[in-house]
Amino acid sequence: MIWLDSLQEFGQITLKAIARMGRGNLFFLSVLRALPSLRGGTDLLAQQIYSVGVLSLQIIMVSGLSVGMVLGLQGYNMLVDFGAEQSLGQATALSLVRELGPVLTALLFAGRAGSALTAEIGLMKVTEQLSAMEMMAVDPIKRVIVPRFVAALISLPMLAAIFSAIGVLGGFFVGAGLLGVDSGAFWSQMQSKVSFGEDVLNGFIKSVVFGVVAAWIAVFEGYDAVPTTEGVSRATTRTVVETAFAVLGLDFILTAVMF
């Protein structure tokens, strides 16, 4: 009965996925319970914000600038047909603040920082560093996971804000600098159409949600990795793929609820 076999296989895959999700949730809870341990010292957190946030600045700034410039260029070409090139600022800012800023930052973050976190934690597991820590009466969740989780969670909204701001500047540079849109109109149109409460704040909320999800996936995959070289490389790939799916899916839901 071949079809029964494949049905069984399908069932196994489903059960494994559910078990993984369960482990992920339990892990999330234990991370939340360990959060107060952060009071102990900010050194670990600073170190992690450095490696997660500061080291991601470069790719975030470059991507933000180029996305903003492309938006300026494409937006101009489209708007000029309607004689509405004055709205370029508004078009650029809205797409950045609402969507592209949070989403692209989260995707880039998964590739740059999330995968690195997973690999780092996974390697600590392979080389028995986590185990050694446990045997030295130090909880690896508190010592290793929590600082990384919190650093990722803090860094992502900050990076998203930087991405959007630099993107707007890129759009301004192309629109007003190269294509001759009036710079006063660029900013005033933007200001009158972009609402702080609805657009900027909602974009920020999105990036906070993405921050939690990206941080959670990255540390969980590292902690749950099969402790072999192959297991770690698989876990790293999974971090990027799962974060991308989660961010895109959540983005749709959040957008539907917010705007």
Binding site: E128, Q129, S131
Partner: peptide
């Protein structure tokens, strides 16, 4: 003492 030493890298 772990097999690999398990030093913090």
């Amino acid at each position: 003492l772990f097999q690999t030493g398990a030093l913090f890298s």
